[in-house]
Design a binder for these strands. Sequence first.
DNA 1: GCTTTAATTCATCAGGTGGTGAATTCCCCG
DNA 2: CGGGGAATTCACCACCTGATGAATTAAAGC
Lengths: 201, 201
Amino acid sequence: MARRGRRRGAAVSRENILDAARRLFAEHGFEGTSLRQVARAAGVDPAMIHHFFKGKDELFALSVELPADPEEVLRGVADTDPGQRAELLVRTVLHLWESPAQASLVAFLRGTLGSRAKTALLREMVGRTIISRIMAGVPGQPAEVALRGDLVASQMVGLMMVRYVVRLEPLASAGQDEVVRLAAPNVQRYLTGDLFEQGRR
Amino acid sequence: MARRGRRRGAAVSRENILDAARRLFAEHGFEGTSLRQVARAAGVDPAMIHHFFKGKDELFALSVELPADPEEVLRGVADTDPGQRAELLVRTVLHLWESPAQASLVAFLRGTLGSRAKTALLREMVGRTIISRIMAGVPGQPAEVALRGDLVASQMVGLMMVRYVVRLEPLASAGQDEVVRLAAPNVQRYLTGDLFEQGRR
DNA sequence: GCTTTAATTCATCAGGTGGTGAATTCCCCG
DNA sequence: CGGGGAATTCACCACCTGATGAATTAAAGC
């Protein structure tokens, strides 16, 4: 059934492989996904993967690479007044996660959280690149701002995990606007609020 | 060097295997860890694992099983006035994660988040068991309480991820008391605060 | 139209995977 | 002290893993 040699028509196998890889990595993680599964899902011989990519690592890197440049996505956020930045930040992140990029993002998290070695990559990326952009222009001593950044990250990461990875209901099905309304005030406190207030409410 | 037959002295191999499994599952996740690696780390023949456990699944389940019964750990929390429950909740969870159980907990998360199938397990467990205990006695309509529970979970999960799995600095090294002071007010808002407040601070 | 280049499959490799059955050695109970 | 049962290792099994090199076919460039 599968004749040998080049197929007729446009050459789309490379993209098919990337699509299949995205899906499978998102479902089963990095080590839980085999090249043969990917090839089968893409309707292609396993050797094609090595023809197009150097190996499993490169396939993973290219298929789940962040489909959007964090700098670009967060540009608007960094330009907003820190005192009202939270709402836009939450909205922007939700928007990104509900785009076609979702499979890549889940795959990235699943593959990346799977092992300690890969987690280091995520730490560098989230830590230095993303957080620093989110915190740009926030007043305060550097040490304090860094701590605030981690706290913001903790809330955002938790939101992504619960809503998109674990999919806890009813939060997973809540509307985007509702989630923004619910979470933004907490994020805002981490960003610029009084961290040492006593006996609120 | 390794003689055949039973070793002299006390029989500790079973515990050695469990310890090694905990460590390796925490570092490399479920599929990233092989039985032979575990056996090697435990200084034992691979066949021992099948002698003591039914297979890799049971080894994983037993080695990373929650070392503390959620019901017991959260008992004090559920008994506290909901209006001041957040501080105790955060403190309790931090305490648990800084106990010897940490390796098991990280292993549980790593193994569990690795694939979609295993994530369902976590969803059931966190969703029905843990959250319902945390939210016991919180006033409000069931649907609203469920949503509040998910929000609390999002902050707690994010905190665990950032502090213990990804280990973002400076949050990872912050003192327990400080983290409680920083995060508890936000958790409290999710628990019993006004979720629809406008233009705070 | 011919040649170069890329896409595709096949056959195969060395090594790792989880798992099994039997043989050997020791502990513990009677 | 004798014997039953548990602990331990060995020798395998069938299968899957990522990877390679050569052979075949089609598209692209001239």
